[in-house]
């Protein structure tokens, strides 16, 4: 399935938040969206998920305008893991994942053993089977985050939209999760804060700043030292690796510029 944004703009309360954003998500790719706080990553995600209507421009699903599809049709194809979603209900971990089956079940369709199998699989995928019976409010932030992702997987979408999916996760689970997403046979779009994670796992990266996409392409093409300095205001050294990948080393503020040859030697 092909998901794309054509010249999309969105504003709220007279303030322009996204301006002329165009993005074509290639089927099967893992696309990373990086950018500073408030640059519009979450807003773009919710437009891509069809939750908000762009002020101008269009979101297309397989070339068809997304607002021509019903909410349910969209939810069968696109799953979104929000940045923050909480509940005060006494819901169990497993029940939270079962919600992912909602778009596939009609009002009268009974829950089937197939649904159970899909939920089991999703729980296994995020390494949460052991805690399936636990109540939501007893779980840690990282465990909750993994359940949100399991719910999105249980939705069996073709495109997975993840808004800062590695939030609250320890480094092992961060890497594990990104690896997991890569391994799924789906198209994934993830807003990420860790540039190295983006560089390591994403096929392409969109760099956002001030509601615009300022660069889009392979990690090593997008993440140049000058761009990162301009957008994030920090000094970095970028080490290019084979296959369009790269590695970023953050420099302590005020430290002298390290010559690239030295770096090459360190990294090799």
């Amino acid at each position: 399935m092909r998901l794309s944004a054509c010249n999309v703009s969105w504003s709220k309360g007279g303030v322009s938040i996204l301006e002329n954003v165009s993005l074509d998500v290639v089927p099967g790719e893992f696309l990373g969206i990086v950018g500073p706080n408030g640059s519009g990553k979450t807003s773009l995600m919710s437009l891509l998920a069809g939750l908000r209507r762009p002020k101008s421009g269009r979101i297309l699903v397989d070339g068809q305008a997304i607002d021509r599809l019903s909410r349910r049709e969209i939810a069968k194809r696109i799953a979104l893991v929000e940045q923050q979603a909480e509940t005060g209900e006494r819901i169990s971990a497993r029940q939270a994942v079962e919600l992912g089956r909602t778009p596939h079940l009609g009002a009268l369709a009974p829950w089937s053993s197939k649904d159970d199998a899909i939920v089991d699989e999703a729980l296994r995928n995020v390494d949460m089977e052991r805690l399936a019976a636990r109540l939501w409010h007893t779980l840690s932030g990282g465990e909750r985050q993994r359940l949100h992702i399991a719910r999105a997987l249980a939705q069996q979408p073709q495109v997975l939209l993840l808004d800062e999916p590695t939030n609250h996760l320890d480094i092992g689970h961060q890497i594990g999760l990104l690896q997991l997403v890569r391994q799924q046979k789906l198209t994934a779009v993830a807003a990420l804060h860790d540039l190295n994670h983006a560089a390591m796992f994403c096929d392409r990266i969109a760099l956002m700043s001030g509601g615009r996409i300022v660069a889009l392409g392979r990690p090593s093409d997008v993440l140049s030292g000058e761009r990162i300095a301009a957008v994030f205001g920090i000094d970095v050294d970028v080490v290019h690796e084979s296959g369009g990948r790269c590695h970023i080393r953050y420099r302590p503020p005020g430290s002298p510029v390290v010559e690239m040859p030295v770096l090459r030697r360190i990294s090799s």
């Binding site: 919710s46 998920a49 939750l51 019903s70 909410r71 349910r72 049709e73 969209i74 939810a75 069968k76 696109i78 799953a79 979104l80 929000e82 979603a85 909480e86 509940t87 209900e89 819901i91 939270a96 919600l99 992912g100 909602t102 778009p103 079940l105 009002a107 939705q155």
Partner: peptide, 19 residues
Amino acid sequence: RALDAFTFGSEAAASLGVP
């Protein structure tokens, strides 16, 4: 089922396909 989907808020319900 739609009411169940509101557990994590209306935004989550919408992304689960609830009008």
